[in-house]
């Protein structure tokens, strides 16, 4: 399994898109927080929760890009038929797809960690340098959101991979990753709301996961941990469904 994990990680990092896509997203997050730190007219009024809230909100886009990268990682295997030499080298399909899932999550966690650390450092250093007083604290929810950014990145990596494995189609998987929270869950929430369901957002897995990166988790309908767990279960279910389906199909 260790050999397989090494091999899969190597495959992930030797395709430029998988490197540049998350790197670009991380860079964008750092630039945004740096600009806010630089251009904020009253840095001393800028709280730690404000900074972490900003990072959390934009980190959703970073996590989406990670999901796009992991979904393209698996769908490109089918598109270029490299899945065939992959499974010829390791015939146990469940093990191969599980290894890919593990590598995807680790990749997401790693990129999420880099994203939150670099952006927080950029923002806090610039704000503090201009007279602000920003420091991570557990009291205002910023510490939880800090780790929530990392967890969301890992979950979206798993979600993207699972979707790609199930669909075997890059454009389809990428479209769903981007449109699900914006369109699908929005429409579903609206329909449920019209139907009289109270707080329908709590039934939407993708939207529930955003509670992970909100500093005040009371703002989220389902709560931080339950929102993350809900989305994690959905992502895992996609992966399991993908493995079951691919064990039965030709590649």
């Amino acid at each position: 399994m260790i050999n397989l994990l090494r091999s899969e990680f190597f495959k992930l990092r030797t395709v430029r898109l998988n490197v540049w896509l998350p790197l670009g997203a991380v860079l964008a997050l750092v630039v945004i927080t740096a600009l806010v730190g630089l251009l904020s007219s009253e840095p001393e009024l800028f709280s730690n929760a404000d900074l972490m809230g900003l990072i959390g909100a934009f980190s959703i886009l970073v996590s989406m890009m990670i999901g796009v990268a992991t979904s393209l990682g698996i769908t490109s295997e089918f598109a270029h038929n490299t899945i065939r030499p992959t499974l010829a080298a390791t015939p146990n399909r469940s093990v191969v797809f599980a290894a890919k899932a593990i590598v995807s999550v680790l990749f997401g966690l790693a990129v999420g960690t880099v994203a939150v650390i670099t952006s927080y450092l950029a923002g806090s250093l610039l704000l503090n340098g201009r007279g602000g007083d920003v420091a991570l604290s557990g009291d205002d929810g910023s510490l939880a959101a800090f780790f929530g950014v990392i967890v969301l990145a890992g979950l979206l990596a798993l979600f993207g991979y699972g979707l790609g494995l199930l669909l075997r189609n890059g454009p389809g998987a990428v479209s769903i990753i981007i449109l699900w929270p914006l369109l699908i869950e929005g429409i579903l929430s609206g329909v449920l709301s019209v139907a009289g369901v109270e707080d329908p957002q709590r039934f939407m897995p993708y939207g529930s996961a955003f509670a992970l990166v909100i500093t005040d988790s009371n703002d989220a309908s389902g709560g931080r941990i339950s929102g993350g767990l809900f989305f994690g279960v959905v992502a895992l279910a996609l992966v399991v469904a993908g493995i079951v389906m691919n064990n039965r199909r030709d590649v």
């Binding site: 050999n3 091999s7 190597f10 395709v15 270029h80 490299t82 030499p85 080298a89 390791t90």
Partner: peptide, 17 residues
């Protein structure tokens, strides 16, 4: 073969696996 990967890297992932 993935067109974006070098020949050496293609063989390296195979060897690692």
């Amino acid at each position: 073969v993935h067109p974006g990967r070098s020949g050496r890297n293609h063989l390296r992932w195979m060897a690692m696996s």
